Computed example of a mutant assay.
Amino acid sequence: MRQELHTLHVRTHGKGLVPITRPVIDWVASTGIGTGLLTLWCRHTSASLTVQENADPTVREDIARYFEALVPEDPSRYIHDDEGPDDMPAHLRTMLTNTQLSIPVADGCPVLGTWQGLYLFEHRRMAHRRDIVLHIIGA
């Protein structure tokens, strides 16, 4: 049994889903671990992780629109605004999604469905550099 740890740095361009599938697959392959469990951990309170449709980009657009309606940037609704009017809504969106994913690994690759991709979900308007910690354990 072995384990490896890596930090994936992801640049965002403001709100939206940023694909991270390829760098995650490449890193898993580089570890030489064939069978195991991959954990992804987002080190932020205003961004999250998700597994989502990777074929049709309109799915990502609909998700972004849904979250805008579900948790609007309305300053009259929130007390916390230390970093601007998108600060508290970003925290709430993160709370409603995932900051951690666990994915089985088989044959040296994360086990994803045909139409599944991995995404960092940026909840802030400004561009950020986000850190995703990748941990794999297996043989």
Score class of each variant (00 low, 15 high):
30 S>E: 14
30 S>C: 11
30 S>W: 10
30 S>N: 09
31 T>N: 12
31 T>L: 09
31 T>E: 06
32 G>D: 02
32 G>Y: 05
32 G>T: 12
32 G>L: 03
33 I>Q: 04
33 I>A: 03
33 I>M: 06
33 I>R: 06
34 G>V: 07
34 G>K: 15
34 G>R: 15
34 G>Y: 06
35 T>H: 14
35 T>Q: 15
36 G>M: 09
36 G>C: 10
36 G>W: 08
36 G>R: 07
36 G>V: 10
38 L>K: 12
40 L>H: 05
40 L>C: 03
42 C>Q: 14
43 R>I: 00
43 R>C: 10
44 H>N: 05
44 H>S: 09
45 T>G: 05
45 T>D: 02
46 S>A: 12
46 S>L: 04
46 S>K: 05
47 A>K: 01
47 A>L: 02
48 S>Q: 04
49 L>W: 06
49 L>D: 00
49 L>N: 02
49 L>Y: 06
50 T>N: 11
50 T>S: 12
50 T>K: 04
50 T>E: 05
50 T>R: 07
51 V>G: 03
51 V>E: 01
51 V>A: 06
52 Q>K: 04
53 E>G: 09
53 E>R: 11
53 E>T: 09
53 E>Q: 15
54 N>V: 06
54 N>H: 12
54 N>S: 15
55 A>D: 08
55 A>L: 11
55 A>G: 14
55 A>W: 11
55 A>Q: 13
55 A>V: 11
56 D>N: 15
56 D>M: 10
56 D>H: 14
56 D>V: 14
56 D>A: 13
57 P>H: 07
57 P>W: 13
58 T>Y: 12
58 T>D: 15
58 T>F: 10
58 T>W: 11
59 V>R: 02
59 V>D: 01
59 V>S: 05
59 V>L: 05
59 V>H: 04
60 R>W: 14
61 E>I: 09
62 D>P: 06
62 D>T: 13
62 D>F: 08
62 D>S: 08
63 I>A: 02
63 I>P: 01
63 I>G: 00
63 I>H: 01
63 I>M: 07
64 A>C: 07
64 A>Y: 02
65 R>H: 07
65 R>D: 01
65 R>C: 01
65 R>V: 00
66 Y>K: 06
66 Y>D: 03
66 Y>L: 15
66 Y>V: 07
67 F>I: 06
68 E>R: 13
70 L>D: 04
71 V>E: 00
71 V>G: 01
